[in-house]
């Protein structure tokens, strides 16, 4: 497993590096606006209040009544965290499908599985690569947040809670990894359905969860949507949401265990 991980990590380290640099710079840009927003709180609140509640609900994902964009947690969630995890989620999906569907198509899986490496070791070596890659990018987020705190003292939050909110983002990504690797294993090789299904789950969950704040009929769906359990702002404001973490950890473990069970039964493409 470690050998597979080493190879995968070597292959993806440039992606991880540039994602870290890119997100770091982007986050600095976002945080650079924070002092201005904080100093013009009244004007911003007036502007925000003029927006339809549905738009606020869509981008925050929490109770709209609490919406105060100058509050650090809400600012991070709405301006960065909420959609940045979607971008990283898309990378996770690509990695999962590179591991199986694409590797079958370009025949690199043949070489890998002709080595003394079990299918399960291959799967979990790749999952480990995804997990470490994402952890490094999220680590870059944390470092950038810390730099932002030094540059702009107006951004004054608990470092511990900031770190925990990033752990939340990591768990969110591990759930995405869980269903992406599972789909990559389940869906027959050389078909193109699995990728779009995974993207649909990722983006669909975000959109439906957003709509569910405005459409009562969609509210019962909320517990089944991954976004229900992830909100960096709430962790920064209120500390760890243990219930949310429990759900995300459990779902990720179950999905990956299922993938590990099914990969031993998979027909690899010719």
């Amino acid at each position: 497993m470690l050998a597979v991980f080493r190879k995968s990590f070597r292959d993806s380290r440039r992606t991880v590096w540039w994602l870290s640099v890119g997100f770091g710079l982007y986050l600095l840009l976002i945080m650079g606006f924070y002092p201005t927003i904080k100093s013009q709180a009244a004007e911003w609140q007036e502007l925000i209040d003029s927006y339809p509640e549905s738009i606020l609900a869509m981008f925050y994902g929490g109770e709209v009544a609490e919406f105060d964009i100058t509050e650090a947690g809400i600012y991070i969630q709405t301006q960065f965290g909420g959609y940045s995890v979607l971008i990283l989620g898309a990378i996770v999906i690509v990695q999962a499908f590179n591991a199986f569907t694409n590797a079958e198509r370009d025949h690199s899986l043949d070489m890998m599985l002709s080595l003394p490496v079990s299918r399960r070791a291959y799967l979990f070596g790749r999952v480990l690569n995804t997990a470490l890659g994402m952890a490094l990018v999220l680590g870059a987020w944390l470092i950038t947040f810390l730099v932002s705190m030094l540059l702009w003292p107006e951004f004054d939050v608990s470092v511990g809670r900031l770190a925990l909110s990033i752990v939340s983002a990591f768990l969110f990504l591990m759930v995405v990894a869980g269903y992406s690797y599972l789909l990559a294993v389940i869906v027959p090789s050389s078909r193109h359905f699995a990728g779009p299904i995974a993207y649909l789950l990722l983006i669909g969950s975000f959109l439906i969860y957003g709509f569910s704040a405005m459409v009562d009929a969609l509210k019962p769906l909320q517990p089944f949507l991954i976004n229900h359990y992830f909100n960096m702002g709430e962790v920064i404001r209120g500390g760890v949401q243990f219930g949310d973490w429990t759900v995300m950890i459990s779902v990720a473990i179950i999905l990956l265990a299922l993938a590990g069970w099914l990969v031993d039964r998979k027909e690899f493409g010719v």
Binding site: K7, D11, D106, H107, S108, D110, M111, L113, S114, L115, P116, V117, S118
Partner: peptide, 17 residues
């Protein structure tokens, strides 16, 4: 896995890293 430790394989379609 035990078997593959003892064999060498060259596929028709060869993709190297």
């Amino acid at each position: 896995v035990t078997i593959r430790r003892r064999i060498g394989y060259l596929p028709t379609e060869l993709t190297l890293l």
